[in-house]
Design a protein around this nucleic acid. Structure first.
Lengths: 199, 199
DNA sequence: GCGAGTGATATGTTTATGCATATCATAAAC
DNA sequence: GTTTATGATATGCATAAACATATCACTCGC
């Protein structure tokens, strides 16, 4: 049984328990026998898609095929501590920085950089808007913004652009690995690990 | 065979063709027999999770359980990418408006509104940051921001808050249905709205 | 014609599924 | 302390369905 399938099974079990349902209760709602749910959760079977979809539906989950490239953004949303108010301050700053970066990119002189390169930068910057950025992530953004500014004041300094792009890429990769960039991931709140219940 | 499972099968086929792979080529990479791929794509079988995961992996897709609540945001990310470049202007404005809205919410007097209500507002505003907002969506944000401002200057005017919240909710729901809010891809009446004739 | 490419069909084997039942835990009653 | 009851998860077994292997039919360039 591969990693991915085990992970799915675990997610189902976690979701069920989060909803406070017994295997039997879930069974009744989903039309899947309790015995089968037991086997599924223990990883004893390679369940069929229909079973998986039924269980997911009852648990308010939807099975989705996500392109690898977009996994980090999607994960960030799913994890989405909806109440980011624990670190509103840095989140605000991050937004501002990203905004500024976007401005700088928009202001790039078209003679020095190819259209494609500009779009690439833009894409990276905007991609980061999907993430919850911690205070520690901000330095990368500041570096990037500073480098960009440097380039704007001296358009011959192509190295500065690469510097900026490098910072953004670094940040993205770090976030893609599920943790804050230079920071160890925040101690997760004990309440509510994953968004679900009630509409 | 349910809708959801068929949809998955279609996605697999689409992804395979997008990558320019034949069923045999995919078979070789994924270790799933071509004959089986044929049946899967035609919806003739209720495939097992392991098969699905293997195929997805080769096609650079990852099977993910997404909480219903977050589906719209996730869908927006999966779908929305390249076309974001074309409407930079309104995207910028949207970001600004959302930022302003977030500020306004943060500035709400805690005496008049419950903590929960404030968090709800904040959550809604931030949720919208995950979407690609078109020019037509902006009016809703402007309405919301205006209403919020009204409340800030007159904290007795609770109606204004509801107005703001209503605007945000409306926008979200429209986006959740996959279309721009007031954009014309929503089910439109076939009849004409106004008496300017000619065809 | 041939050969190499595509996706669809048979046939046998493996296995998930579904039903019935067993085990385990905890608590109530004797 | 033992028994009984209740609610949970696990296990055995028959069967239907997914899966594997091989083959088919079809379309192309040659």
């Amino acid at each position: 049984m591969s990693y991915a399938t085990e992970h799915i099974a675990e997610s189902l079990k976690a979701a069920r328990e989060r909803k406070g349902l017994s295997q039997r209760a879930l069974s009744a709602k989903a039309g899947v026998p309790q015995s089968h749910i037991s086997k599924i959760e223990s990883g004893a079977v390679d369940l069929r898609l229909s079973s998986l979809v039924e269980l997911a539906r009852v648990l308010d989950l939807e099975l989705t095929l996500v392109p690898r490239k977009k996994l980090p953004a999607v994960r960030a949303i799913i994890r989405g501590d909806d109440d980011g108010h624990r670190d509103v301050q840095s989140a605000r700053k991050a937004t501002n920085l990203l905004q500024r970066l976007d401005d700088q990119i928009a202001a790039l002189p078209s003679e020095t950089l190819s259209e494609i390169a500009v779009q690439e930068l833009q894409r990276r910057a905007r991609e980061l808007m999907h993430f919850k950025l911690s205070a520690d992530d901000l330095v990368h953004l500041q570096e990037a913004s500073a480098a960009m500014q440097e380039f704007l004041s001296d358009p011959r300094n192509l190295e500065a652009v690469e510097q900026a792009q490098s910072q953004l890429r670094m940040l993205r990769n770090a976030l893609a690995h599920g943790a804050g960039a230079s920071a160890p991931s925040l101690p997760r709140p004990a309440y509510r690990l994953d968004g679900d219940d009630h509409g």
